[in-house]
Amino acid sequence: MIAETYAVIWYLLVGVLLAGYAVLDGFDLGVGGLHLLARGDRDRRVFLNAIGPFWDGNQVWLVTGGGALFAAFPHVYATAFSGFYVAFILLLFMLIFRGVSIHVRSLRAGAAWRSFWDWAFSVSSLLASLLIGVALGNVAWGVPLTAGFRYQGDLWQQIHPYTVLTGLLVVAMFLMHGAIYLVLKTEGELNARVRTWVRPTIIAFIMLYVVVTMATLLYLPHMADPFREQPLLFLLPAFSVLAIANIPREVHHGREFRAFLSSAVAMLLLLALFGVGMFPELIHARPDPALSMTLHNAASSTKTLQTMLIMAAIGMPLVVAYTFHIYRVFQGKVKLDSMSY
């Protein structure tokens, strides 16, 4: 029973870390996706410096989430990363390119240099978002696990209509989040242009949201089971629709920060929906769901989960406190100065 409780707690905590990653790195990945739409060097520098102080810390949520997955559910870590080998290696390359391009892009003046790193930044941001979405889609759709959680993955089998849709959903979600973030950080003419990007990204997000939800209900009925059992859970999608609908309203009234918060809430609710649908599975197995990896059969020992919980209880409040403080120091519109990217 105690073992069960700790496994459930870590299921939630890994989810919280990955949701933290989505909400925080999501906006800077989105800014990356929109980067090439900025015309002219100055506007592009504004974009880079809008995320400049934050992207690095945001990415740590992924690194820590990966570490927590390794420690709490080593089998899931092992099966997922080796099974999605090519996809994850590509994701790693994208993350390397992204980090380097943000930092080095403005260090030299040449037009070719800057244009190369602009493209590297934008393409790697889009592809990284897509790959994350494809991976999530596969986890939900199910992969052919055999006994012992062995999964001989193949990139071309991992890309099919459902996972492409979840990939595009994540791209659209991050673009929406990034566009709203840019509204928050830019001013003047650029701000006026950025505002026009909010609506199309929201529309793309909602359309994909609807399509993916329908596909999930049709093809992955097991994801809907928890909702049938506990109808109160339908409040999650209801609130998420309300949060999305609230975004254009807040933008219209010039309450940019509240628009950004709405977008964050909408994303969190969507991820919660995903988590509830998956629970207690971590990787769905098909064709035989009995072979699925769950928090019961793939977790670490209770001793390890307890130890980790103590570490998280000491460390994470500190992290949240100083992260919050750092965001406050850099709040407001972007101003370029001699230390900027």
């Binding site: 570490g67 927590a68 420690a71 390890t304 130890t307 570490m311 460390g315």
Partner: peptide
């Protein structure tokens, strides 16, 4: 992983965020 994963997670929590 039961033993080796924790230090990597701790590295994220205590070092990389900081």
């Amino acid at each position: 992983g039961d033993v080796f994963g924790s230090p990597l997670a701790a590295e994220g929590i205590f070092a990389f965020f900081l």
